[in-house]
Design a binder for these strands. Structure first.
Lengths: 330, 330
DNA sequence: CTGAAAGCGCTTACAG
DNA sequence: CTGAAAGCGCTTACAG
């Protein structure tokens, strides 16, 4: 059995209260006692039981993070930011890989609730009523990342998706492109789907350029869907000279489609992505894309979680276009 | 305040012992009581306090996973496997992003120890004495992934790195290549460094082919180092026709170097990677590589952790060569 | 400067 | 079928 506070108290001949004070850096003992206790702790290899501590202090120093997909590069980068900041503050993080599954998400919420985490970060998904209610019921700080909700006004950190897409499209237009396609997410997705499509459309419309629905093909943000969507797009609108993809992974799909169909990028087809994931700079050619400060968003989310009175705080992070080699000036 | 077992007991007019039995599916109550209690639980929105439970049962249903880098695609895929299996079994996972830092690793070990996790998975790093001792002292099951240790015989799941590298090199030789370079990890790294270099060397030597140290350039498994190493390699041994990279990310670096230096892959230079990360199939051209069953390794690691009497269990997973488009037959 | 005692929210013999 | 009580390993008033 692991030694307890009682063991070190006995060993030293003091009370457990005194040991507790010493461990926790409170005062109320002389140096003499402190030394003896510390020695005993060392000798017995005593480590305080965080579970017992948690029970009395009702604080576990643990937070939960819900991600739709742990292997996604956006999610992992975000996680890195969250974990870094959490660790600095002495918190551990439990990961929850929801796979965007409703039931699974609810289960995680239950577990997190039972395990009495001190806070929770919910990412990249639409807040359904079932989630919102559960989240409210937990009675702990909640921070949203890459999502927000009018019905459940939790603090959030995100990027302005519509605006980012708008800027990406304007960038393409300024490079001289006139027929611009989009490889989009699901238009029913109010988070990363429709806003980006709207931004694309608005940029085009404002400049009197065509923004027909035949110029957008829908994917699921992942690579394979990017390939397929591009094929569809180029078949329906062969005059497209540039494509805006709603994620870097899909943009890589565009590149892949182009490679296999002997369409040169950027000389015959320009491509701009979204995220600035690690893969963007590793792409061939290196991918021009919309940079989201993902790591910083993770840091910020943790900050909001740990800061007092964060209710209602909203944090919209800046984006920027990172110019690499996939967009040609016409 | 959250309702406690006492609240539901009071509400129902039974003892907390009975409520506890009902919650835990033990027997010792009639249907009548059960119904009432369940109703009260529902009404009060009572959720059992896992911390209190953990204190008495000395089991937290939580495990810790130490990773050198959370954004690495090997690590995240592994994590996915671990988390999936853990979740099935009712366990949560705390992630620890060590950044390969010794002090940080030790800190995580302390925290995990204090939080009384039920088990721990340690990945991809050499087991230094300090780690081994601490791990032993924790008194909980430990499973190693992609590493192993003679001094600390914990169960492990890994691939035979030397053999995998050997096979990759043989594959290149059988394709007719004679001067084969290697973009390696650090030769001082006894886990993913030296064994792969040895495998490469052995394959070459056995067939009377040159295996000079000028044919190997050292990287850190990441992209940028792959680019640099390739430049060095091609300068020192311009007659190289094929390169074996000790990670897919470095292989992408090779591809990138080739692209920027107008060396066609695979017509002028063949490349084989290691891992079969997601990026391998997204590469241009799609990367031929050594496939590690990473997800399955995660599953297996969790299985070993949860299985009784796993001490001394060793699990060497099979690899295979995945042929894509970066190796040319000479 | 120090200790005895209550209490955090549960589970688990033990007794009925 | 059910309850009173001890105990898990701590922290924190309270008293001295």
């Amino acid at each position: 059995m692991k030694p307890t506070i009682r063991d070190v108290a006995k060993q030293t001949g003091v009370s457990i209260a005194t040991v507790s004070r010493i461990i926790n850096g409170l005062d109320g003992y002389n140096e003499e006692t402190k030394k003896k206790v510390l020695a005993a702790i060392d000798e017995l290899k005593y480590t305080p039981n965080a579970i017992a501590r948690g029970l009395v202090s009702s604080s576990t120093h643990t937070i939960g993070v819900l991600l739709p997909c742990v292997t996604d590069s956006f999610a992992t980068r975000l996680l890195q930011g969250i974990e870094d900041r959490a660790r600095e503050r002495g918190y551990s993080v439990i990961i929850c890989n929801t796979e965007s599954d409703g039931e699974r998400t609810l289960e995680y919420l239950d577990v997190l609730s039972e395990k009495r985490v001190d806070g929770l970060i919910f990412t990249s998904e639409w807040i359904r009523t079932a989630y919102g209610e559960r989240l409210n019921g937990m009675g702990i700080p909640v921070v949203l990342v890459s999502t927000s909700s009018d019905s459940y006004p939790f603090p959030f950190v995100k990027v302005d998706d519509r605006r980012a897409a708008y800027q990406a499209t304007v960038y393409l237009i300024e490079k001289g492109h006139r027929v611009i396609g989009m490889v989009a997410g699901n238009p029913e997705d109010p988070i990363a789907g429709s806003p980006r499509i709207e931004g694309w459309r608005q940029a085009l419309l404002e400049r009197g350029l065509p923004a027909d629905s035949r110029q957008v093909a829908v994917g699921d943000f992942h690579f394979a869907s990017g390939v397929t969507a591009t094929g569809l797009l180029m078949m329906r609108s062969p005059d497209i000279t540039a494509i805006f993809a709603a994620s870097d992974e899909m943009a890589l799909g565009v590149l892949s489609w182009a490679y296999h169909n002997k369409v040169a990028v950027p000389s015959s087809l320009s491509v701009i992505g979204y995220d600035d994931a690690q893969a963007a700079e590793m792409a061939i050619p290196p991918l021009t894309t919309v940079h989201q400060p993902i790591y910083e968003m993770g840091l910020k989310a943790a900050d909001l979680l740990f800061s007092e009175a964060s209710m209602g705080k909203e944090c919209v992070m800046p984006i920027k276009i990172v110019e690499r080699d996939t967009v040609r000036k016409l």
